[in-house]
Amino acid sequence: MNFYATRFPALPAWLAGDSSPTLRQLESFAGATHTPIGYLFLQQPPQERMPIPDLRSMPGERLRPSGDLLDMIYACQQRQDWYRDQARAAGEPALRFVGSAPVGSDVVEVAAAIRGVLGFDLEDRRRLPTWTDALRQFIEQADAAGIMVMCSGVVLNNNRRHLDPREFRGFAMADPVAPLVFINGADTKAAQMFTLAHELAHIWAGQSALSDAEAARLPEQEVERWCNRVAAELLVPLDAMRADYAPRAELRAELDRLARRFKVSTLVILRRMHDAGGLTWERMWAAYEQEVSRLRARPKGSGGNFYLTQAARVSKRFARALVVSTWEGRSSFTEAFRLLGVKRMETFRGLSESLGMAR
């Protein structure tokens, strides 16, 4: 509200009915809020239906989905539809793991199955320099297994339309040949790791969902509780945790040591300390909130290479397929630009080069 009141000083008067905007002002306001101008003439706001099941359980008032969230879901649905058509045309078989673990299945067995499909080896992870390297590898492993993993903090490539992690952390779109996971890249890297693990559990369950996955929370819905348990077991198997955990050690030192050892965030380690019986729920939650504040206060890294970032936003699997299809003439450049969220041929060519597919 403050942002729009700054850009449109007359907004409070419009809302109070003391004055009315001109048509030009309405057009400007509609553009700034990404709202069809016709909506502004309705007596009541339209009921926006969530395209996928909404399983969020964040505390506080439940608001209508933002235009940014809806547009991101719609964009991912379009990408999934395109990729599904391409995969079927190429005769690609269905991925057997999609829907292979109904909700309520044994958590340890499901986590082991996910590790097997992804090649998610704990010892290999321990040899990586940092857990952020482990997160990058985690995404690449899921993508290589056939799951499009898209991670972005903005809608398409519009850096003025930031996705709010307080609204959602991620979502999954289960599909036999084109499963898709979206991670809110505006969230902390620590949260992104658990979100990916949680959404993978949704893919194994064969259930699409919008989530606010958080390691320390107990969601209301059974499917979300189950996905959280699978995610925790996937990242840090409880047997391995119990073997390595020293409950009597100083918490800060042990937290950092185990995070380095398992190459996961300290947030996941706190949850597993509780699961292993080393921390009460109250102590774990207090430490968890302190750790979230500490991680959020850390400076964010630079954007890095634009083309690598772009590939991460749409998944390398999807980007490669679309680039190849476009250069081979099976897809139009107009369609490719729309699905990628780019506007210039130079950008498309640069992305092609970064993926090793230059023409």
Results as ranks from 00 to 15, higher is better:
Leu255Thr: 00
Asp256Thr: 10
Glu250Pro: 02
Ala253Phe: 09
Ala246Pro: 02
His274Tyr: 10
Leu267His: 08
Ala276Cys: 07
Ala276Gly: 14
His274Glu: 14
Glu250Asp: 15
Leu255Ser: 07
Arg257Phe: 05
Ala246Leu: 10
Arg248Gly: 15
Leu258Ser: 04
Met273His: 04
Glu250Met: 13
Ser265Gly: 14
Gly277Phe: 07
Leu251Glu: 09
Arg252Met: 11
Glu254Ala: 09
Phe262Gly: 03
Leu267Val: 05
Thr266Gln: 15
Arg261Tyr: 08
Ala259Tyr: 02
Thr266Cys: 12
His274Ala: 11
Ala276Arg: 10
Asp275Val: 01
Glu254His: 04
Arg272Asp: 00
Arg261Pro: 00
Asp256Val: 11
Arg272Tyr: 01
Val268Ile: 12
Phe262Tyr: 06
Leu258Thr: 00
Thr266Met: 13
Ala253Gln: 14
Val264Met: 11
Ala253Val: 06
Leu255Lys: 02
Met273Cys: 11
Leu258Ala: 04
Ala246Phe: 09
Pro247Asn: 11
Ala246Val: 12
Ala253Glu: 14
Ala246Glu: 15
Leu267Ile: 05
Ala276Ser: 14
Arg272Glu: 05
Asp275Glu: 12
Glu250Gln: 14
Val264Lys: 09
Asp256Pro: 00
Arg271Val: 00
Ala259Ile: 01
Leu255Phe: 09
Ala259Gln: 02
Ala249Asn: 13
Arg261Lys: 12
Ala253Ile: 04
Ala276Val: 01
Gly277His: 10
Ile269Trp: 04
Ser265Pro: 13
Ser265Gln: 08
Arg260Glu: 12
Gly277Ala: 08
Glu250Val: 15
Arg261Asp: 03
Leu258Cys: 07
Arg248His: 15
Val268Ser: 11
Ala259Leu: 04
Glu254Thr: 06
Asp275Ile: 00
Val268Met: 08
Leu251Cys: 11
Pro247His: 11
Ala253Gly: 12
Ile269Leu: 07
Ile269Gln: 05
Met273Trp: 02
Ala259Glu: 01
Arg248Glu: 15
Ala249Val: 06
Met273Ser: 06
Ser265Leu: 07
Arg272Ile: 00
Arg271Pro: 06
Pro247Trp: 03
Ile269Lys: 05
Leu255Tyr: 07
Gly277Val: 03
Ser265His: 08
Met273Leu: 11
Glu254Arg: 01
Asp275His: 05
Thr266Trp: 01
Leu270Asp: 04
Leu267Gly: 10
Glu254Gln: 13
Leu267Pro: 12
Thr266Asn: 10
Ser265Val: 04
Arg271Gly: 05
Leu255Gly: 09
Leu251Phe: 10
Arg248Gln: 15
Pro247Phe: 04
Val264His: 10
Asp275Asn: 05
Arg252Glu: 15
Thr266Leu: 05
Ala253Ser: 14
Thr266Ala: 14
Ala249Cys: 09
Ala276Ile: 01
Glu254Leu: 10
Leu267Gln: 11
